[in-house]
Simulated scan of single mutants.
Amino acid sequence: MSLLDRFSLGEGFRKYFEIATAFDDAARNNVFGIRHEVYCEELGFEPVRPDRRETDEYDRHSLHCLLRTSTEPHTLVGCNRLVMARPEDPDYPLPFERTCAATLNRSIIDPAKEPRGAIAEVSRLAVRAYYRRRKGETKAAVAISDEDFGTKEQPRFPYIPIGLYLGVIALAKHEGIETLFVLTEPRLAEHFAKLGVKITQIGGPVEHRGIRVPSMMNVDSIIKGLRFFVKPIWRVVAEEIEAGYATGHPSFRPT
Rank of each mutant, 00 (worst) to 15 (best):
E153I: 14
T99K: 13
I177M: 11
I202Q: 02
V213G: 05
R187M: 06
T179W: 05
E121L: 07
L104H: 05
E178R: 15
L125R: 01
E121C: 12
K152I: 13
A118S: 10
P111S: 06
P205I: 00
P214R: 11
I160R: 02
A141S: 13
T103D: 05
E178A: 13
P155K: 04
P158Y: 04
Q201F: 01
H191D: 09
V122Y: 12
R132A: 03
L188Q: 04
V197D: 01
R124F: 05
H191M: 11
V219E: 05
V206F: 09
Y131E: 03
E175N: 15
V213Y: 01
E121K: 12
P155Q: 03
I202G: 02
A102I: 06
T179A: 10
D146P: 06
L104W: 03
F149L: 14
K194F: 05
R133N: 15
P158D: 11
I109C: 08
T138H: 11
C100Y: 04
S123Q: 08
N218W: 10
R187A: 12
K194G: 09
E185R: 07
E114F: 10
L188D: 00
E178I: 13
Y130K: 09
S123G: 14
F192C: 13
R187I: 03
M217I: 12
D110H: 06
G210D: 08
P214E: 08
G167C: 06
R116I: 13
L195Y: 01
S123H: 04
M217D: 02
A129S: 14
K135Y: 07
R209P: 10
K113V: 13
S215G: 10
G210Y: 07
G117K: 09
R209E: 15
G163E: 01
A143H: 11
D110E: 12
S123K: 06
N105P: 00
Y130H: 11
V197P: 04
I202D: 01
I211F: 07
K139P: 00
K198F: 08
I169F: 12
G203K: 03
R106V: 11
P186F: 06
I211V: 15
D146Q: 09
F192M: 13
E178M: 14
F181K: 01
I160C: 02
V219M: 07
F149E: 12
H191I: 08
E175L: 12
I169Q: 02
T179C: 08
A129H: 09
P186G: 04
E153K: 13
A129G: 05
L183Q: 01
E147Q: 15
L180G: 02
R133A: 09
Q201L: 04
D110Y: 10
R124S: 10
G210H: 08
M216C: 15
V168W: 01
E178Y: 10
K198W: 03
V142I: 10
R132P: 04
E121Y: 05
M216Y: 07
A172N: 07
C100P: 10
P111A: 07
A129V: 04
K173W: 03
G203C: 05
L104A: 04
L164I: 12
S145T: 08
F192K: 13
L195A: 06
A102Q: 14
Q201R: 10
G117L: 13
K173R: 09
A101T: 08
N105E: 05
D146N: 10
G210A: 13
L171N: 04
D110M: 09
I144C: 05
G163F: 03
R209M: 15
K194L: 14
G150Y: 11
K198E: 15
I144R: 07
P161Y: 00
L166E: 02
I202L: 03
G210C: 08
